[in-house]
Design a protein around this nucleic acid. Structure first.
Lengths: 116, 116
DNA sequence: AAAACCTTGACACGTCGATGGTAATGTTGA
DNA sequence: TCAACATTACCATCGACGTGTCAAGGTTTT
């Protein structure tokens, strides 16, 4: 099991060393350190760095989005509050863009008012 | 059941009319429209606008955060992907700030290396 | 028909997320 | 010991988010 330095990890993960440090600050992936403070990236870290890249690209997310998801995962109070608010919403058809929904609602009410 | 115009809704919800339109664009709260296109805010919308304000203030969230939470709620694929990535993470003690965790990890590895 | 609303679209600005670079300093290994 | 690499801290950029304001044009109300 080899361990990589930050630049080696950067080269093989697709991130820059600058971003590896930034990712650490977000709390999303905090590699261990040597006694003298050097970051140490093992196979596990490498794997997660690669999948993180794919995750962001695939769903067009930012690091802050994943950070929020993490926050939602381990903060039950926050999760419940947000969940509660979302479900106090009037049901709007799923998988419909805001724009389509807007047109839909508009037409629905036009129909309602036209019928009056 | 009275219905309010956007400015009235703004005045009684704590948002500005500008923000009410912006919130609509995010898809978080899309009020119905009159036949001529005027937004119509009812008691339900008013209530949700107020609780939305409290939610953001209480947890220091942005509208984009709640929008992401909504996306996570109704996009199972996204939710599973993010959830999966987060759980591929090495377990880090809950309710610990990134900074504290950093120090903890550092000290842990210093201890390990010192013992070697 | 005029006043007082509403609508969309545009310009503007501060903050923050995401990135890169550089400087000053400590660590490692030949 | 010297070259190569690491660390933190700071400066800079660029786009997105959050917000205000204003203009040009419909709608409602009196």
């Amino acid at each position: 099991m080899e361990t990589l330095t930050i630049h080696e990890a950067a080269a093989t993960s697709g991130w820059s060393s600058r971003m590896l440090r930034y990712i650490e600050r977000t709390g999303l992936l905090v590699p261990p350190r040597t006694a003298s403070g050097y970051r140490v990236y093992g196979p596990g870290e490498l794997q997660r760095l690669r999948t993180l890249r794919e995750l962001l690209a695939r769903f067009d997310l930012g690091l802050s989005d994943v950070a929020l998801a993490a926050r939602l995962e381990h903060d039950r109070e926050l999760r419940d509050a947000v969940h509660g608010w979302l479900h106090s919403q009037p049901r709007r058809p799923e998988h419909v863009s805001a724009e389509d929904w807007l047109r839909f609602e508009q037409e629905k009410h036009e129909r309602l008012l036209a019928a009056a």
